[in-house]
Write a protein that binds this DNA or RNA. Structure first.
Lengths: 138, 138
DNA sequence: TCTCATATTTAGAATGGTTCTAAACTGTTG
DNA sequence: CAACAGTTTAGAACCATTCTAAATATGAGA
């Protein structure tokens, strides 16, 4: 039987990125990229993997998340001290951040316009402009 | 002799904010507010206090920084996981963040304009819009 | 298919920033 | 000046994350 029916896509994606498609990485890639744009933490992904029947260590989840980020499959979003969020949407976009429950909501990349950014200090180049719209229950 | 010559201002400021002007709080307020706009971490302020001849625990620095933030004397800036920065400039403004050394540089509040912020989700109100211009050595 | 070198995974220890605890101390108020 | 509430403190506890060293899996070549 074709046991790789759904994994093929993930394995290919990993190979293209220069990462060996190990069982763990394929499993995580499946969870990450098969459900639209997502924001997750190492812990939440580890839990989700467990619920889906995969067995892997939290250290591997951290390693994988960092590797995926390194090859551009994920983007790290740091808003709040403490936990690091990983975003499966790697394109240009911004976020609403709910201060009550720590959740993130995407704002499409062409929605917000930032004008008037001054020239960076000598010898520096702008890497990215991040906008976070902090909201709370009213 | 008038031993409170320079402390009076700090003590008054603290009282107005509803905080008892203890020795430790007055000392930290002096370091924080007498040298223009500053960005610092608990550890850097603790070191600085030590160098200035004050003796206080790191826990007190954390407590004080959080209390000052609570009453609006400071603003917390969270950009990078790990350490929390505290900013003595509580007015509206934005930051350059240097990814190479983790330093922050103020961008005056009337410099950058953000347009097109969408309406927040139902039941939510915008608290603040943060802009971080990430730069690196070029 | 078998072997081997190398990449990966893993449990558990280690780290680093921050908060908590409980006891000692200080500021204020009567 | 007594007495209580607010503060400080040392050190333990916490939490997310990284590191370590040893075990395991993967891919290439024979």
């Amino acid at each position: 039987m074709a046991s790789k029916k759904t994994s093929r896509t993930e394995a290919a994606r990993l190979k293209e990125a220069g990462l060996r498609p190990t069982r763990q990485r394929v499993a995580l890639a499946g969870l990450l990229f098969r459900h639209g744009d997502r924001h997750l933490t190492a812990e939440s992904l580890h839990d989700e993997a467990g619920r889906a029947g995969h067995t892997l260590s939290l250290a591997t989840v951290y390693n994988t998340l960092n590797q995926f980020t390194g090859v551009g499959l994920l983007r790290q979003v740091t808003i709040d001290g403490g936990r690091a969020y990983f975003d499966t949407n790697t394109g240009e976009h911004q976020h609403f951040y709910c201060e009550d429950d720590g959740s993130l909501i995407d704002i499409p990349g062409d929605t917000i316009a930032v004008a008037g950014v001054p020239a960076p200090p000598k010898g520096m180049a702008v890497d990215r402009v991040d906008v976070v719209v902090r909201v709370r229950k009213s």
